[in-house]
Amino acid sequence: MTTAPILEVRGLSARYGEVVALRDAELTMREGEFVAVLGPNGAGKSTLMRSIIGLANATGTVRFRGAALKRDPAAVAAAGIALVPEGRGIFGPMSVAENLQLGAYMIGGRGPDYERRLARVLHLFPRLKERLDQVAGSMSGGEQQMLAVGRALMADPKLILLDEPSLGLAPKVTAEILESLALLNREGLSVLLVEQKAPLALKLAGRAYVVSNGRISAEIDPKEITSHGDLARYYFA
Protein backbone atom coordinates (compact mmCIF):
# COMPACT_ATOMS: atom_id res chain seq x y z
CA MET A 1 0.00 0.00 0.00
CA THR A 2 2.28 2.70 -1.14
CA THR A 3 0.00 4.32 -3.71
CA ALA A 4 -0.40 8.10 -3.89
CA PRO A 5 -2.74 9.78 -1.41
CA ILE A 6 -6.25 10.34 -2.77
CA LEU A 7 -7.55 12.39 0.15
CA GLU A 8 -5.58 14.55 2.58
CA VAL A 9 -7.49 16.36 5.30
CA ARG A 10 -5.47 18.94 7.22
CA GLY A 11 -6.60 21.02 10.18
CA LEU A 12 -10.26 20.72 9.28
CA SER A 13 -12.57 22.42 11.80
CA ALA A 14 -16.27 23.14 11.64
CA ARG A 15 -18.77 24.82 13.90
CA TYR A 16 -22.51 25.22 14.07
CA GLY A 17 -22.96 28.62 15.61
CA GLU A 18 -21.16 28.48 18.96
CA VAL A 19 -20.75 24.73 18.97
CA VAL A 20 -17.49 23.36 17.60
CA ALA A 21 -18.49 20.12 15.91
CA LEU A 22 -15.11 19.25 14.45
CA ARG A 23 -11.68 20.33 15.63
CA ASP A 24 -8.45 20.11 13.64
CA ALA A 25 -9.23 16.85 11.91
CA GLU A 26 -6.27 15.18 10.17
CA LEU A 27 -6.88 12.25 7.88
CA THR A 28 -5.06 10.67 4.95
CA MET A 29 -6.34 8.10 2.50
CA ARG A 30 -4.44 6.39 -0.28
CA GLU A 31 -5.82 5.38 -3.67
CA GLY A 32 -7.85 2.20 -3.43
CA GLU A 33 -8.07 2.18 0.34
CA PHE A 34 -11.15 1.22 2.37
CA VAL A 35 -11.07 3.40 5.46
CA ALA A 36 -13.60 3.41 8.28
CA VAL A 37 -14.41 6.31 10.58
CA LEU A 38 -15.81 5.08 13.87
CA GLY A 39 -17.23 6.84 16.85
CA PRO A 40 -20.30 7.24 19.02
CA ASN A 41 -23.37 9.18 18.04
CA GLY A 42 -22.73 12.93 17.90
CA ALA A 43 -18.94 12.57 17.86
CA GLY A 44 -18.58 14.63 14.69
CA LYS A 45 -18.39 11.91 12.06
CA SER A 46 -21.13 13.36 9.85
CA THR A 47 -19.66 16.82 10.22
CA LEU A 48 -16.35 15.44 8.98
CA MET A 49 -18.09 14.07 5.86
CA ARG A 50 -20.00 17.27 5.25
CA SER A 51 -16.85 19.32 5.75
CA ILE A 52 -14.90 17.27 3.26
CA ILE A 53 -17.43 17.79 0.48
CA GLY A 54 -17.99 21.45 1.31
CA LEU A 55 -21.49 21.32 2.79
CA ALA A 56 -20.46 22.40 6.28
CA ASN A 57 -19.08 25.77 7.20
CA ALA A 58 -15.53 24.55 7.74
CA THR A 59 -11.95 25.83 7.84
CA GLY A 60 -8.81 23.93 6.99
CA THR A 61 -7.72 22.24 3.79
CA VAL A 62 -8.86 19.18 1.90
CA ARG A 63 -6.69 17.91 -0.94
CA PHE A 64 -7.97 15.42 -3.48
CA ARG A 65 -5.32 13.68 -5.57
CA GLY A 66 -2.93 16.40 -4.62
CA ALA A 67 -5.11 19.38 -5.56
CA ALA A 68 -6.87 21.57 -3.01
CA LEU A 69 -10.64 21.18 -3.10
CA LYS A 70 -12.84 24.25 -3.26
CA ARG A 71 -15.46 24.47 -0.57
CA ASP A 72 -18.18 23.98 -3.16
CA PRO A 73 -20.13 20.71 -3.32
CA ALA A 74 -20.54 20.99 -7.08
CA ALA A 75 -16.77 21.31 -7.57
CA VAL A 76 -16.17 18.42 -5.18
CA ALA A 77 -18.64 16.28 -7.08
CA ALA A 78 -17.01 17.24 -10.36
CA ALA A 79 -13.60 16.28 -8.97
CA GLY A 80 -14.85 12.72 -8.40
CA ILE A 81 -16.08 12.45 -4.82
CA ALA A 82 -19.59 11.15 -4.19
CA LEU A 83 -21.45 11.13 -0.90
CA VAL A 84 -24.06 8.68 0.29
CA PRO A 85 -25.58 10.91 2.95
CA GLU A 86 -26.84 9.93 6.34
CA GLY A 87 -30.49 8.91 6.09
CA ARG A 88 -29.85 8.06 2.40
CA GLY A 89 -31.07 11.37 1.00
CA ILE A 90 -32.93 9.73 -1.85
CA PHE A 91 -35.68 11.73 -3.54
CA GLY A 92 -38.86 9.96 -2.50
CA PRO A 93 -41.34 11.46 -4.95
CA MET A 94 -39.14 10.63 -7.94
CA SER A 95 -38.80 7.30 -9.65
CA VAL A 96 -35.76 5.08 -9.11
CA ALA A 97 -34.66 5.84 -12.65
CA GLU A 98 -34.81 9.58 -12.04
CA ASN A 99 -32.83 9.22 -8.82
CA LEU A 100 -30.15 7.39 -10.74
CA GLN A 101 -30.19 10.00 -13.48
CA LEU A 102 -29.64 12.65 -10.83
CA GLY A 103 -26.57 10.74 -9.68
CA ALA A 104 -25.10 11.39 -13.10
CA TYR A 105 -26.17 15.04 -12.97
CA MET A 106 -22.65 16.27 -13.67
CA ILE A 107 -22.50 14.53 -17.05
CA GLY A 108 -25.90 15.80 -18.09
CA GLY A 109 -28.40 13.72 -19.97
CA ARG A 110 -28.31 10.24 -21.41
CA GLY A 111 -25.43 9.02 -23.52
CA PRO A 112 -23.19 5.99 -23.91
CA ASP A 113 -21.30 6.94 -20.76
CA TYR A 114 -24.56 7.19 -18.86
CA GLU A 115 -25.81 3.82 -20.12
CA ARG A 116 -22.54 2.16 -19.14
CA ARG A 117 -22.78 3.52 -15.59
CA LEU A 118 -26.45 2.56 -15.31
CA ALA A 119 -25.70 -0.99 -16.45
CA ARG A 120 -22.98 -1.29 -13.84
CA VAL A 121 -25.23 -0.08 -11.00
CA LEU A 122 -28.12 -2.32 -12.05
CA HIS A 123 -25.74 -5.25 -12.26
CA LEU A 124 -24.54 -4.52 -8.74
CA PHE A 125 -28.09 -4.05 -7.37
CA PRO A 126 -30.41 -6.14 -9.54
CA ARG A 127 -33.33 -5.26 -7.31
CA LEU A 128 -33.21 -1.69 -8.56
CA LYS A 129 -33.62 -2.91 -12.11
CA GLU A 130 -37.04 -4.35 -11.29
CA ARG A 131 -38.09 -1.11 -9.69
CA LEU A 132 -36.82 1.50 -12.14
CA ASP A 133 -40.26 3.05 -12.67
CA GLN A 134 -41.30 2.81 -9.04
CA VAL A 135 -41.51 5.87 -6.82
CA ALA A 136 -38.33 5.71 -4.73
CA GLY A 137 -40.12 6.63 -1.51
CA SER A 138 -42.30 3.53 -1.73
CA MET A 139 -39.39 1.10 -1.54
CA SER A 140 -38.10 -0.69 1.54
CA GLY A 141 -35.29 0.81 3.58
CA GLY A 142 -32.73 -1.61 2.20
CA GLU A 143 -33.73 -0.91 -1.38
CA GLN A 144 -33.56 2.80 -0.68
CA GLN A 145 -30.05 2.39 0.66
CA MET A 146 -29.09 0.46 -2.45
CA LEU A 147 -30.51 3.28 -4.49
CA ALA A 148 -28.53 5.82 -2.49
CA VAL A 149 -25.30 3.91 -3.12
CA GLY A 150 -26.26 3.30 -6.74
CA ARG A 151 -27.00 6.98 -7.24
CA ALA A 152 -23.59 7.93 -5.85
CA LEU A 153 -21.95 5.40 -8.19
CA MET A 154 -23.73 6.97 -11.17
CA ALA A 155 -21.33 9.90 -10.78
CA ASP A 156 -18.51 7.42 -11.49
CA PRO A 157 -16.61 8.62 -8.42
CA LYS A 158 -13.00 7.88 -7.57
CA LEU A 159 -13.83 8.17 -3.88
CA ILE A 160 -17.14 7.36 -2.25
CA LEU A 161 -18.10 8.60 1.19
CA LEU A 162 -20.78 6.69 3.07
CA ASP A 163 -22.43 8.13 6.13
CA GLU A 164 -23.94 5.43 8.35
CA PRO A 165 -25.39 3.22 5.64
CA SER A 166 -26.48 0.64 8.21
CA LEU A 167 -28.86 3.07 9.91
CA GLY A 168 -32.29 1.51 10.34
CA LEU A 169 -31.48 -1.55 8.28
CA ALA A 170 -31.62 -5.26 9.13
CA PRO A 171 -28.11 -6.69 9.61
CA LYS A 172 -28.55 -8.99 6.66
CA VAL A 173 -29.38 -6.13 4.32
CA THR A 174 -26.52 -4.04 5.65
CA ALA A 175 -24.14 -6.91 5.06
CA GLU A 176 -25.39 -7.24 1.48
CA ILE A 177 -24.79 -3.58 0.77
CA LEU A 178 -21.38 -3.52 2.39
CA GLU A 179 -20.39 -6.62 0.48
CA SER A 180 -21.05 -4.83 -2.77
CA LEU A 181 -18.92 -1.95 -1.54
CA ALA A 182 -16.11 -4.33 -0.80
CA LEU A 183 -16.44 -5.61 -4.32
CA LEU A 184 -16.21 -2.12 -5.76
CA ASN A 185 -13.21 -1.44 -3.54
CA ARG A 186 -11.46 -4.45 -4.96
CA GLU A 187 -12.13 -3.00 -8.40
CA GLY A 188 -10.26 0.13 -7.34
CA LEU A 189 -12.83 2.48 -5.80
CA SER A 190 -11.63 4.24 -2.66
CA VAL A 191 -14.17 4.01 0.15
CA LEU A 192 -14.51 6.15 3.27
CA LEU A 193 -17.14 4.60 5.51
CA VAL A 194 -18.56 6.27 8.59
CA GLU A 195 -20.14 3.79 10.97
CA GLN A 196 -21.35 3.58 14.51
CA LYS A 197 -21.50 -0.18 14.28
CA ALA A 198 -17.75 -0.72 14.51
CA PRO A 199 -17.52 -4.52 14.12
CA LEU A 200 -19.28 -4.29 10.80
CA ALA A 201 -16.95 -1.61 9.48
CA LEU A 202 -13.82 -3.19 10.84
CA LYS A 203 -14.54 -6.40 8.99
CA LEU A 204 -14.13 -4.57 5.68
CA ALA A 205 -11.85 -1.65 6.34
CA GLY A 206 -8.11 -1.78 5.97
CA ARG A 207 -7.69 1.10 8.40
CA ALA A 208 -9.93 3.03 10.78
CA TYR A 209 -10.04 6.38 12.52
CA VAL A 210 -11.90 6.95 15.74
CA VAL A 211 -13.71 10.24 16.25
CA SER A 212 -14.85 11.41 19.63
CA ASN A 213 -15.85 14.83 20.91
CA GLY A 214 -15.18 16.42 17.55
CA ARG A 215 -11.60 15.19 17.32
CA ILE A 216 -9.94 12.36 15.53
CA SER A 217 -8.70 10.64 18.64
CA ALA A 218 -7.03 7.57 17.22
CA GLU A 219 -6.00 5.69 14.14
CA ILE A 220 -6.29 1.94 14.42
CA ASP A 221 -5.51 -1.21 12.55
CA PRO A 222 -8.61 -3.43 12.46
CA LYS A 223 -6.48 -6.51 12.79
CA GLU A 224 -5.47 -5.38 16.26
CA ILE A 225 -9.04 -5.07 17.43
CA THR A 226 -10.18 -8.46 18.58
CA SER A 227 -12.66 -7.72 21.36
CA HIS A 228 -15.23 -5.15 22.15
CA GLY A 229 -13.12 -3.99 25.03
CA ASP A 230 -10.27 -3.10 22.72
CA LEU A 231 -12.48 -0.68 20.83
CA ALA A 232 -14.05 0.87 23.90
CA ARG A 233 -10.54 1.88 24.89
CA TYR A 234 -10.30 4.08 21.82
CA TYR A 235 -13.84 5.45 22.03
CA PHE A 236 -13.39 6.81 25.47
CA ALA A 237 -9.73 7.68 25.31
Binding site: R50, L55, P73, A77, A82, P85, G89, P93, Y105, M106
Partner: peptide, 16 residues
Protein backbone atom coordinates in the same frame (compact mmCIF):
# COMPACT_ATOMS: atom_id res chain seq x y z
CA UNK B 1 -37.42 18.16 -7.67
CA UNK B 2 -34.16 17.07 -6.05
CA UNK B 3 -33.56 20.39 -4.34
CA UNK B 4 -37.16 20.48 -3.20
CA UNK B 5 -36.48 17.17 -1.43
CA UNK B 6 -33.18 18.10 0.16
CA UNK B 7 -30.96 21.01 -0.77
CA UNK B 8 -27.93 19.35 0.80
CA UNK B 9 -28.47 16.08 -1.04
CA UNK B 10 -28.93 18.04 -4.26
CA UNK B 11 -25.71 19.98 -3.64
CA UNK B 12 -23.80 16.78 -2.99
CA UNK B 13 -24.85 15.59 -6.44
CA UNK B 14 -23.30 18.69 -7.94
CA UNK B 15 -26.47 20.73 -8.38
CA UNK B 16 -25.97 24.47 -8.05
Amino acid sequence: VALSGSEDAARALGIN
